[in-house]
């Protein structure tokens, strides 16, 4: 970074803190800011500040929200008795994009990861149990990722909800649409047979 004026160095250092951004990319972004108009930079900084000022957790599902409740929880047409449990807001967006789901969500903000020291106390699991106890819930769909951490989290939640009068389901795993069995790994194939359904 030698050769850059101190304000540019500072900007590069700040961009470098972003996930997935190395020093070269940070320098490209800083140069883009330098070439932008004063108005463009003002809009950019305002939007950064807006995110910090206005966005908070939805008081019901812990999705990111502008007000007390997120758009999904505030929508009276959504089925409040079905809760889909997801790892993070990005997973919620992915399910919403499918256009198939009409229930509400619960965002855990992470998954159990013993090797990183992340246990249930660091997630919104207690809040989920409290929510299920407080409101009439018919089904909880566990939509954590099908990896070791996601599976562990789903197993724990399923066990904690066992005593409650609620149906607990897990999203299906298997061959993707348009996939080819010959090129599907054996673990996915085994799971697709395990989670097969009546045709």
């Amino acid at each position: 970074m030698s050769g850059y004026a101190i304000p540019i160095k500072n900007l590069i250092a700040e961009f470098s803190k972003f996930p997935g951004i190395g020093e070269k990319t940070a320098a490209r972004l800083a140069n883009h800011v330098l070439r932008s108009s004063g108005e463009e930079v003002r809009v950019f900084t305002e939007s950064l500040l807006d995110v910090k000022r206005k966005i908070r957790f939805c008081s019901v599902c812990f999705n990111l929200a502008e007000g007390e409740r997120c758009d999904v929880c505030a929508d009276s047409r959504r089925d409040q008795s079905t809760i889909c449990v997801v790892e993070d807001p990005d997973s919620l967006i992915a399910i919403e994009a499918s256009g198939e789901y009409r229930g509400v969500y619960h965002v855990l903000h992470g998954v159990i990861s013993p090797l990183d020291g992340i246990g249930p106390d660091r997630l919104k699991i207690a809040e989920l149990l409290e929510r299920v106890a407080r409101q009439p819930v018919q089904e909880v769909i566990l939509a954590t990722n099908p990896d070791t951490s996601g599976e562990s989290t789903a197993l724990l939640i399923s066990r904690l909800l066992r005593e409650r009068n609620v149906k607990v389901s897990r999203i299906a795993f298997g061959v993707p649409m348009g996939g080819d069995l010959r090129y599907t790994d054996k673990m996915t194939l085994a799971r697709s047979l395990e989670f097969r359904r009546t045709a």
Binding site: L115, D185, M187
Partner: peptide, 24 residues
């Protein structure tokens, strides 16, 4: 080239926690 996934461990919470402790 995967030889063993240890699927029984992955589908059991206690086993996953103990296996994680072994790795740690």
């Amino acid at each position: 080239d995967v030889a063993f996934h240890f699927q029984e461990i992955r589908s059991d919470l206690e086993k996953t926690l103990i296996a994680s402790y072994f790795l740690d």
